[in-house]
Design a protein around this nucleic acid. Structure first.
Lengths: 188, 188
DNA sequence: CTGTAATTTCAGTAATTACTGAAATTACAG
DNA sequence: CTGTAATTTCAGTAATTACTGAAATTACAG
């Protein structure tokens, strides 16, 4: 990407910066990633520093963070020491990585905490009630996680096909109901 | 809930406090909500203040925040001015509210920003590429949003039935493939 | 309407997080 | 191996966010 940034690209970067700061990720890292995603060519640290008007060391730390999320790929050019960074070319790959990483950082620890708290038997009525809620939370989170993991298995093409069904997913679910219907549930 | 807190309940509250601080929500608000969820009885502001060892004004601000997320219900007891707060009894209701609110705060503004940026025609090759990425992002986010909205329609009982299928969702998707198969896609 | 208990607001401060610039380290072309 | 360009680390500072206590406001029992 040739610098400096056009207003259009600039606004997009600023927006993702703001959004980033509502997540755990900070503003600058959000901007950096938007910049990388919108760039056709891989960028080096100096490109990013210049484009966003931040310090070189800040760029370094931000890239480290993005690496830890596995959201960027590193490339080298022959005969140059400089490192070039780029985002995956497929947005669904990016989304899958995000989902995966957030699961690891937020969901898994929560599930494990809940499981541990559910091992002990309740000491009184309050704990009994509290454990019941924890059990419900654990079950719900686990189910939702399984579900999204299934969806993550899909590759880009499959996802496209599937989601183009759009809101007719309702129909898919009904279909499932009919299938299950035979088992022993009365409808609803 | 009778105060003070037992170690079990304490740990759960602390965990959700930590998790909360990785989201936009701050530690105290996370703790407050965990406390409310684990409490059988509605709590008043002073109960929360005392249980978490925070200032009364902090409690007030936290409750305001939770109200803005529509995550707590307000109750009054006859003959008392005091206000009592409680979380929904059904964890799926809580999850649905969370999803809904995050959609409103993060997804919708992003979709609208992207749409706006896609209106103008690209000024150069860089912008053309950038717009292409934005288009892909917009499409993906919109599809995922539609999908989760469908799932949000389900009530607790339906969800339970559906998710008890567990990972066999793969089968549901295959099923859909077979249904669609007739149309014109060759498999994969 | 009055008194008071409860809640909210807000300015000030504490705590945390983000960022910079200089120094140290690393990687590699030559 | 040497020199240098690139990257990283880190201590210090800036910026932001969280929290408190006092003052103001609100709600309602009486």
């Amino acid at each position: 990407m040739s610098l400096p940034l056009t207003p259009m690209i600039q606004s997009c970067i600023l927006h993702f910066g703001e959004m980033g700061s509502r997540w755990g990720i900070n503003r600058t890292v959000g901007q950096m990633y938007a910049l990388l995603v919108l760039s056709k060519e891989p960028l080096c640290a100096d490109d990013i520093t210049e484009a966003l008007g931040i310090s070189r060391s800040n760029t370094s730390m931000g890239l480290k963070e993005l690496m830890s999320w596995e959201l960027v790929k590193l490339q080298h050019r022959p005969g140059e020491r400089k490192e070039f960074y780029s985002a995956p070319g497929d947005v669904w790959d990016i989304a899958k990585t995000l989902i995966e990483q957030r699961r690891k950082r937020e969901i898994d620890p929560t599930l494990s905490t809940l499981r541990n708290l559910l091992i002990d038997s309740p000491a009184n009525a309050d704990e009994e009630y509290a454990q019941q809620r924890m059990r419900e939370m654990h079950e719900l989170i686990e189910m939702l996680t399984l579900w999204t993991q299934e969806i993550q298995r899909l590759d880009s093409a499959q996802l496209g096909k599937l989601l183009k069904l759009g809101s007719s997913i309702g129909k898919v679910l009904d279909m499932k109901d009919r299938l299950l219907g035979g088992k022993k549930e009365t409808t609803k």
